[in-house]
């Protein structure tokens, strides 16, 4: 970020540079002011307050008076529903990660290696679910799976895979499975683009050299492509994991946590306490759940971040040898 070079200009101009530089500073401050206001008011302040609220008993109406120290957290630790929902979030995240990461990589390799016509067309096709509203997908899918006479049961019966319609969303295991499949379908395109970005950073020379050495498709993949992708795969893992842990739109519209709360995730747990509880909203309790889960996600991210760093260092060592 260097200043424009003025050193080769005449001394008279140089005398003015300090004044000119200061004027540039004022402009720069002016330019970042709108961002600064939004940043302090709508980012920093809410983050700080999300911690503050978690120490109060507060319905969201009236002043913040009832400071109860760690009570919300203590209650949370004994709240079995919280821990069940915590597990549901983990279950969903693991399911989605395990499905999406490898399949999206296979697809990305297919797109990257083959010189087929219509690449953009296919990419658009497989990416399309990503740009659609998750909430609306949830509603459409609830109809596709939920009705006993709708699409999925119709299909399976036509091909004689099942005899009687299955109540997909009335069974806890099936409902979670449907949610994972729909979520994976929706998120797949993004991860495919992530992998493609990684693959395109590998220079064609390396492949050329491998070809000359007589390496076939699979040994090239195993010994060249995958090791090079290691650092970026850790980044993709991080993004996929964090995405999977914060599922709200889909669960709210597809199952609303049902049946019997068996698909309720932490984000829905918090929402229900803050905005949709039948009695008085418990903003403080909801906030403490948000903080606890936020810290969990943070620690997990640090763990993955450590993996990223390690993968990067391995590469450097290999590069030197």
């Amino acid at each position: 970020m260097s200043e424009p070079l003025l050193s080769n200009q005449k001394p008279r101009v140089k005398l003015n540079t300090s004044k000119r530089r200061h004027r540039r500073y004022y402009w720069a401050y002016l330019f970042i002011t709108p961002q600064f206001i939004l940043f302090v008011g709508l980012t920093i302040f809410p983050i700080v307050m999300s911690y503050v609220y978690s120490f109060y008993q507060w319905s969201g109406i009236g002043p913040l008076e009832n400071f109860i120290k760690w009570e919300n957290y203590k209650e949370l630790f004994h709240d079995t529903k919280f821990w069940h929902d915590f597990l549901h979030s983990l279950e969903y995240m693991v399911g989605q990660t395990v499905i999406v990461m490898p399949l999206a990589l296979i697809m990305a390799i297919l797109f990257n290696e083959s010189k087929i016509k219509g690449k953009t067309f296919y990419r658009t096709l497989y990416f399309l679910p990503v740009v659609t509203s998750t909430a609306i997908i949830g509603i459409v899918m609830a109809n596709i799976f939920g009705n006993k006479d709708a699409l999925v049961n119709n299909l399976l019966q036509t091909f004689h895979i099942i005899k009687h319609p299955i109540h997909w969303l009335d069974n806890p295991t099936l409902a979670m499975t449907v949610m994972i499949i729909v979520g994976s379908w929706k998120f797949f395109g993004i991860v495919m683009i992530y992998w493609l970005a990684g693959l395109q950073s590998i220079s064609a020379d390396i492949y050329e050299a491998a070809k000359i050495d007589g390496a076939n498709f699979f040994s090239t993949l195993w010994y060249i492509t995958l090791p090079i992708l290691k650092p970026i795969s850790a980044v993709i893992l991080l993004l996929t994991v964090v995405n999977g842990l914060h599922v709200f739109d889909l669960v709210k519209t597809l199952t609303d946590g049902g049946p019997y709360f068996s698909t309720e995730t932490i984000d829905l747990f918090i929402y229900n306490y803050a905005f949709a509880s039948d009695g008085i909203p418990r903003m403080g309790y909801a906030s403490s759940a948000g903080i606890l889960f936020g810290i969990f996600v943070f620690l997990l991210s640090i763990g993955i971040g450590w993996l990223i760093k390690k993968a990067g260092q391995d590469e450097k060592v290999k590069g030197k040898s």
């Binding site: 709508l42 980012t43 809410p46 307050m49 999300s50 609220y53 903003m283 759940a289 943070f298």
Partner: peptide
């Protein structure tokens, strides 16, 4: 540093304070 840090620091349920503002 501040801008990038917001990506990583653990946050709670920030929509409640946003709603209040």
């Amino acid at each position: 540093v501040l801008i990038t840090a917001t990506m990583f620091i653990p946050k709670g349920y920030t929509i409640i304070p946003l709603f209040e503002i």
